[in-house]
């Protein structure tokens, strides 16, 4: 219970900082919108092909925008040696890592919501027909991106080429998660309810999230201190 309280304190602090500075949300939001608008000029929004490409385009945009968010997660702790202060404090390293991921998760959801509205306007796709399933897909995939991004963000925080290294390391790991999210979103954008195929992908996403969350908790001390 205390660990959860600590994690939520870290997330609350990160969200408060982001609300003040808007460093990563502005960058990620602007990037997502720009990409979606630019691709809308490349494809005919009234063609059938757009329905087949839309989900992939959407999740790749979210994944790239996510990098802008989770790159800032631990980098925010570098000025004034805040990371050292946190590591020497009573805060459990696992709570720090989970707290960071919770912060990134909510920021990603915010970017996704804004992007979906732009997507609906420019691609003539009614994405809101199955809101429950879409929310589930976004939540499962976003948590996967957030926890993986936070773990590797912690590992690369002291690297000089952090902004470059982090996406290079993380995207290959996210492949199963992105494939699952794309398959699930594909059905939803085609106005199809989930079948057993999409539910199977939902289970893959759940397993991905559980595995990476467990690894983050178990290895937090090693990742952050060693």
């Amino acid at each position: 219970m205390k660990a959860f309280k600590q994690a939520f304190s870290v997330a609350r602090k990160d969200l408060a900082l982001e609300l003040r500075t808007k460093e990563s949300v502005n960058a990620a939001g602007a990037f997502s919108i720009a990409i979606l608008i630019l691709f809308s000029f490349a494809f005919d929004p009234f063609s059938e092909a757009i329905h087949e490409l839309a989900a992939g385009l959407l999740w790749l945009t979210f994944a790239f925008a996510g990098a802008l968010v989770f790159n800032r997660g631990f980098a925010r702790e570098l000025p004034n040696e805040c990371l050292d202060t946190l590591l020497a404090s009573p805060l459990a390293p696992s709570s720090l890592l989970i707290g960071k991921a919770i912060g990134v998760f909510f920021l990603l959801l915010l970017v996704e919501v804004v992007s979906l509205f732009v997507f609906g306007v420019f691609y003539n796709i009614r994405w809101w027909l199955h809101p429950g399933e879409l929310a589930l897909t976004c939540a499962l995939a976003s948590w996967g991106i957030a926890i993986t991004g936070s773990v590797f963000g912690a590992l690369t925080v002291n690297l000089r080429l952090r902004e470059l290294m982090l996406p290079v390391i993380i995207y290959p790991l996210l492949v199963p998660l992105l494939v699952g999210a794309i398959e699930m979103t594909n059905a939803l954008l085609g106005n199809q309810p989930f079948t057993s195929y999409e539910w199977l992908w939902a289970k893959v996403l759940i397993v991905f999230d559980i595995v990476f969350t467990s690894l983050a908790i178990a290895l937090a001390e090693t990742i952050l201190v060693n």
């Binding site: 602090k13 900082l17 000025p79 004034n80 040696e81 805040c82 050292d84 202060t85 020497a88 009573p90």
Partner: peptide, 18 residues
């Protein structure tokens, strides 16, 4: 041990925007 320790390093360990 961490709960019983107070550490002040070279960096002040506080957030500029809070």
């Amino acid at each position: 041990t961490r709960r019983r320790t107070g550490f002040l390093g070279h960096g002040i360990g506080v957030y500029e925007d809070l």
